[in-house]
């Protein structure tokens, strides 16, 4: 089982622009943002509310489209891809960690973490082994058969990190992963993300309001009004 990935550049965004038009008002959420993230690198996106962090993350994670600019993921040009191909790319190469954890409530911890491997058609034996390992690495294997509702916020976010990392993604997108956690837990979560990502060489982009998070990151990118500072 190969748990690391090679070629160092994971993400390249150049001149990304995004405008939201609602009725007769238009918001320029991103005004020409460029960003490169290397393998194993943890980049923090900070900036005031409405500065365009989530918009940039969504475009970076292939769940939204820019109006202008170019995107590459693991050297693959994304522009012009059909929705189905984008989904396939996300399935293979992108992991997500959400502010509200977004675990599937009817699935226990084990099944939530296993889900991405099911989508990838990994054999049952390999799934069992990889899920167990992932649970161990985030420190929640005693809770494998619990439902998400029976876990604390920090524990849930660990499950979400295991779910995001189990497929050894090229890129992990985390939008405010610690906003619903107390500061001690938040620090633990960021450290965990950072440690696991660098171990297996996944690039991580985290959006956060929290300036203290910056200390735990390799690089901090500040967005103001859709522009990088």
């Amino acid at each position: 089982m190969n748990t690391t990935i090679s070629t160092s550049e994971r993400v390249r965004l150049t001149g990304i622009r995004k405008r939201y038009s609602t009725g007769d008002t238009a918001v320029d959420a991103l005004r020409g943002v460029s960003l490169n993230v290397a393998a194993g690198e943890l980049v923090a996106l900070t900036g005031p509310s409405g500065s365009g962090k989530s918009t940039l993350l969504n475009i970076c994670g292939l769940i939204d489209h820019q109006d202008e600019g170019e995107r590459f993921l693991a050297g693959i040009a994304i522009n012009g891809m059909a929705e189905k191909q984008l989904t396939d790319l996300r399935r293979e190469k992108v992991g997500f960690v959400f502010q509200n954890f977004n675990l599937v409530p009817v699935m226990n911890v084990h099944d939530n973490v296993e889900y991405p491997l099911l989508l990838l058609g990994v054999s049952a034996a390999e799934r069992r082994e990889r899920v167990q390992q992932a649970l161990m690495r985030v420190g929640i294997e005693p809770y494998a058969s619990r439902l998400p509702d029976a876990l604390s916020g920090g524990q849930r976010q660990r499950v979400a990190i295991a779910r995001a990392l189990i497929k050894v993604p090229h890129l992990v997108i985390a939008d405010e992963p610690t906003a619903n956690l107390d500061s001690v837990t938040a620090a633990q979560i960021v450290d965990l993300l950072r440690q696991l990502a660098s171990e297996q060489g996944s690039a991580v982009v985290v959006a956060t309001h929290d300036h203290r998070m910056a200390d735990h990151c390799d690089r901090v990118v500040q967005l103001v009004d859709g522009e990088m500072q």
Partner: peptide, 16 residues
């Protein structure tokens, strides 16, 4: 709906 969005983000096709 949010669960659908989550599963789509992590790579489920609409058909799935």
């Amino acid at each position: 709906t949010r669960e659908i969005g989550t599963l789509r983000a992590i790579g489920s096709q609409p058909g799935e």
